[in-house]
Simulated assay, not measured.
Amino acid sequence: MGSLLDAVAALAALLSPAKIEAIASRLRRASPSVREQELQQIVGTPAARAALESFVTAWRGTALSGDVVAGMLLAAAHTRQRMQQECDVELVWTGPTTPFVAPRRTEQVLLDVIQRVTKELFIVSFVAYDVASIIAAINSAIARGVDTRILVEASVTQGGSLLVDPVSTMRNAVPSAKLYVWTDRPHPFTNGRVHAKVAVADGVVAFVTSANLTGHALEKNMEAGLLLTGGHVPSSLRDHLYALIETKVIRPA
Rank of each mutant, 00 (worst) to 15 (best):
M1S: 09
L4M: 01
A7K: 02
V8R: 03
A10P: 01
L11K: 06
L15T: 04
P17F: 04
P17L: 02
I20Y: 02
E21Y: 04
A22R: 12
I23M: 11
R26E: 11
L27T: 01
S31P: 02
S33F: 00
R35V: 03
E36C: 03
Q37G: 10
Q37W: 00
Q40A: 11
A47D: 09
A48R: 03
A48Y: 01
S54K: 08
S54C: 04
S54V: 02
L64R: 07
L64D: 04
G66T: 03
A70S: 14
A70V: 03
A76F: 06
R80V: 06
R80G: 13
R82A: 15
Q84K: 13
E86P: 07
D88S: 15
E90Y: 05
G95C: 08
T98M: 04
T98C: 08
F100E: 10
A102V: 08
R105S: 14
R105N: 13
T106D: 13
Q108T: 13
L110P: 13
L111K: 06
D112F: 04
D112I: 05
V113W: 03
I114T: 08
K119C: 13
E120R: 15
L121H: 08
F122I: 10
V124S: 08
F126T: 07
V127A: 14
V127N: 09
D130L: 15
A132R: 13
S133H: 09
I134S: 07
A143T: 10
V146Y: 03
T148F: 07
I150G: 05
V152P: 11
E153N: 11
A154W: 01
S155A: 15
V156C: 13
Q158Y: 05
G159S: 07
L162W: 07
V167N: 01
T169I: 14
M170P: 14
A177P: 13
A177W: 02
V181H: 02
R185C: 09
F189D: 10
N191S: 12
R193Q: 10
H195G: 11
K197L: 03
K197M: 05
A199Q: 02
A201D: 06
V204I: 12
A206P: 06
F207Y: 08
S210V: 02
T214S: 15
G215A: 14
A217K: 00
L218A: 10
E219D: 13
E219V: 08
K220N: 12
E223K: 00
E223W: 00
A224C: 05
A224L: 06
L226Y: 00
L228V: 15
L228E: 00
G230V: 05
G231C: 08
H232M: 12
V233G: 02
P234H: 03
S236R: 06
L237M: 09
L237C: 06
L237S: 01
D239F: 03
T247V: 08
K248V: 05
K248S: 15
I250M: 02
